[in-house]
Amino acid sequence: MTSPSRRARSVLTRPWVGPLEALTAVFLVVSLPRYLTPNPALSRSVPPADFPPYYPLLVTHIFFGAFALVLQLWPRLRHRHPAVHRGAGRVYAVAVLVASPCVLAIAPFGSWGPSEWVSVAMLGMQWPATTIAGYRTARLRRLAEHREWMIRSVALSFSIVADRFWGMLCVAVFAPDVPDAAALPGMPGHREFAQAMSISVWLSWTVNLLFAEWWILRTRSRKPTCSGSAHRGESAAVGTR
């Protein structure tokens, strides 16, 4: 059990954890219901007529990605319930490895053009790569490296949440006079709207990853490197047995 003083230190050193958990919960409550029906018209994406698997792949990606997010809403599991944390880590890895190929398959059919496609493809490759690296280092008991790879993986997982913020900001900055209807191909202002949204897609994961690298460098020297009880406290997010 985590002591009150330790919980207080955790809040002080990671003040964004609580707000981030709340933001993610709100995002899931608001965004997921529209994908609970088989009607693509309710989604934020326009399925292309020439690729029927697009919408099923999109829904699979969204739900497995959402499941990965839910598993990261309780970071305190690592210290309080190591066995549960390891099990959740295994499920997280499976969710990422299912969701990422789906997004790679639909990337060329996005609505915002080649720049978005490249960004989504890069995200779709880095997300499983960091997760696999996190799994391998956990299995090898290289727990300091495991922690760093999983920070990167989780930062990429949260790109979908960040994209909503960056999307609103980019539209306000780069296409302030463009109506919402411009999101549809062929409508007046669609080009400007697409450019703004393409920028937001890049920002959604690059800023997260830059922050993750900054946090890793800032906290690297604080983490124990010896074996024993210190490693058990930092037990792996992905199965170690």
Rank of each mutant, 00 (worst) to 15 (best):
I160R: 10
H85F: 09
L169H: 01
T13D: 14
D50G: 10
W127N: 02
S43F: 05
R220E: 05
R6V: 15
I132C: 00
M1L: 11
Q126M: 10
V161H: 01
C226E: 09
S200D: 02
P179Q: 12
T13M: 13
A88H: 07
P114D: 10
M1C: 11
H61W: 08
M150T: 07
D180C: 08
D50Q: 15
T13P: 01
A230L: 13
L20S: 06
S153A: 07
L12N: 08
A68I: 15
P101E: 09
S119H: 04
P128I: 08
L210K: 03
L73A: 15
W149H: 02
S115R: 14
F51D: 13
S229T: 05
G87T: 04
H81Y: 03
L123Q: 04
F63T: 08
L20P: 09
P52K: 07
A121C: 15
M1H: 10
P40C: 13
G113A: 10
I132P: 00
L28K: 13
T137F: 09
H81F: 10
A175W: 07
W214M: 11
H79D: 13
Q72C: 12
L184A: 15
A155T: 07
W215L: 09
H61P: 01
P47M: 07
R241L: 08
P82A: 13
E234G: 12
Q126W: 08
A138Q: 05
A155K: 05
Q72P: 01
H231Q: 11
L20C: 05
A99E: 06
H231T: 12
R44T: 05
R9V: 08
W205S: 13
A49I: 11
M150G: 01
F211E: 06
T206L: 14
S43M: 03
V98M: 13
I62A: 01
G134Q: 03
V154M: 09
S221Q: 04
S115Y: 12
P48F: 09
P15E: 12
A105K: 07
A175C: 06
R90P: 10
H81W: 13
R164T: 06
H79Y: 14
V26D: 02
Y54E: 15
R142K: 14
S119Q: 06
S235N: 05
Q126F: 11
F27M: 03
P19F: 06
A99L: 02
G233P: 07
P128S: 10
Q72K: 14
D177W: 14
R191T: 06
A25R: 07
V46G: 00
A105W: 07
T206A: 06
V154A: 02
L69K: 00
P108V: 09
L32A: 06
A133V: 09
G89R: 00
P15A: 08
A83F: 04
R9Y: 03
